[in-house]
Design a protein around this nucleic acid. Structure first.
Lengths: 201, 201
DNA sequence: AACCGAGTTGACTAATCGGTCAACGAATGT
DNA sequence: ACATTCGTTGACCGATTAGTCAACTCGGTT
């Protein structure tokens, strides 16, 4: 076998970062290669196209982030605290990115998804997939909350989708306004959505 | 004076349509010119850059659509019906677009805004501006609803923003999933957000 | 030592990108 | 009749785009 290499991983990492900060359309393969200190030939040794790279970069990012979501949404935590912890997690991630790059970057999956949903079916599908995975965490938390009598709930799937889309919307708003302030409304918005009045733990 | 011309308007119209259906990055100036039956020189006679064209195209589209919003949000309509009418309006617009182009296109302002928020300050600003204008309609409806005792309300601006971002999120979800179905949740989501139980008029 | 194959290199292509320009057309004001 | 002004034309520019390729390196196997 040949020597093990981090070239592929570096490309995935750099690509995800650049696309999140800028956009798919404005990031070139040359730029990705340069930033990753990789030659173009190597790029096309590992990926057959820019589009495929994007799909794999986002899947890889999910793999990296999943343990954090598993922790936030752990069944060991009370269900409503899972949701609050998620808000915190989302806000932290946005704050770090914004500090590092000077502007609010929004949800990476949503950004790539909206940019290419009508043009690249594979990217659209991957974006959809990752969104649906996240919704499953929320759904599970809602079901547990209902079982504990904390909320009344008819449709866990629908409720989870409503919460998730509302968060997406606030992230979108924050990005376009380049202002993280609105994200302080994450928790009250969620609690209001599922009909919980008291916020204190 | 020279003969009056619709070249500029045609470019604005075509550009808005193409960017909405595809994305800013994937639409070229050549493509816009070709579709508008206009030469490149004429394009740069009216606009100094692709970016400026986009800003003006979106402003022009707002000017065209504003009367419809004025009608939907007319003070002649009961406040809650304004919101319901707006949901209908949004859904209709999405449905028409989706039928015409074969995929859900989402909110044009949000799509352009997220794609370029971190890269083109003028486009980001225009996107923000148009969003804030729309929120003002909602805010006014909420205030009127509160005055009529239909809802209880502390912060009309915050409530309107919450409603608007939630709608944005559902449009984003619909686009990425290429499915208009979720938009049937527009009304219940809004009514739940502002604490109205009964939906019937 | 000969070989193999995964990974690297960077020059190369054809197409396309956003943008420029000088020449031209046509209607108006004088 | 003439100049002025707005708009048109399409060839042209240098830069950049995604993607290709044949030659190469180098550790592991036989």
């Amino acid at each position: 076998m040949a020597k093990p290499t981090d070239t592929r991983e570096k490309l995935l990492q750099v690509a995800f970062d650049l696309i999140w900060n800028q956009s798919y359309g404005s990031v070139s393969v040359d730029q990705i290669c340069e930033r990753a200190h990789v030659n173009k030939g190597s790029f096309y040794h590992f990926f057959e196209s820019k589009s495929e790279l994007a799909v794999e970069a986002y899947e890889e990012n999910w793999r990296e982030k999943q343990p954090e979501l598993d922790r936030v949404f752990s069944a060991q935590n009370p269900p409503l605290e899972r949701l609050l912890g998620w808000c915190q997690y989302v806000r932290d991630r946005q704050r770090k990115k914004a500090e590092k790059y000077g502007h609010v970057c929004g949800c990476p999956y949503a950004s790539l998804g909206t940019e290419l949903a009508t043009q690249d079916e594979k990217i659209r599908g991957k974006s959809q997939e990752i969104m649906d995975r996240t919704i499953r965490y929320i759904e599970s938390a809602l079901r547990d909350a209902a079982r504990e009598g904390l909320i009344s709930l008819e449709d866990a799937g629908g409720g989870a989708r409503r919460i998730y889309t509302a968060v997406l919307g606030q992230l979108l708003y924050a990005k376009v306004h380049n202002d993280l302030g609105v994200l302080s409304e994450l928790e009250p918005m969620i609690m209001n959505t599922i009909g919980v009045r008291a916020l204190a733990a």
